[in-house]
């Protein structure tokens, strides 16, 4: 199976002018990976409003690729663009940490 591509519907909300390119390394069906996908999709929907491109790579299906790209653990999120690149590991339940990696600031509640 080729890695899944989540493409934006339309360039995003006000303030988001560039497409954020993300890659999430997971193990399909494993609990933290399932949670990481759900957490990331919720964050992208709230903060990027479609102004992003997310590729999900299952490391059990593509171990060589994960190693070539320097992945150490899964789930692991890589922000590839815009620079600077950033990484977050774990199930992405810490929203502040994910937003910081994406170069975004948490909205006031």
């Amino acid at each position: 199976m080729s890695p899944r591509q989540h493409k934006p519907k339309a360039p995003g909300a006000a303030g988001v002018t560039t497409v954020v390119v993300l890659r999430l390394y997971i193990v399909g069906g494993a609990p933290n990976s399932v949670q990481a996908i759900a957490n990331l999709e919720a964050i992208c929907q709230e903060y990027l409003k479609g102004g992003h491109r997310l590729e999900v790579v299952d490391v059990l299906e593509h171990p060589a690729r994960a190693m070539a790209e320097g992945v150490l653990v899964t789930p692991s999120l890589a922000k590839l663009s815009p620079l600077p690149a950033a990484n977050v590991v774990g199930n992405l339940s810490d929203k502040t940490k994910v937003l910081a990696a994406l170069g975004l600031r948490r909205r006031a509640q």
Binding site: I26, V27, A30, P31, N32, S33, V59, L60, P63, A66, M67, V71, L72, V73, T74, P75, V89, G90, N91, S93
Partner: peptide
């Protein structure tokens, strides 16, 4: 730290 927090599924 993520492994200790139980947030990791696999290690390469």
């Amino acid at each position: 730290r993520a492994i200790e927090a139980g947030q990791i599924d696999a290690v390469i």
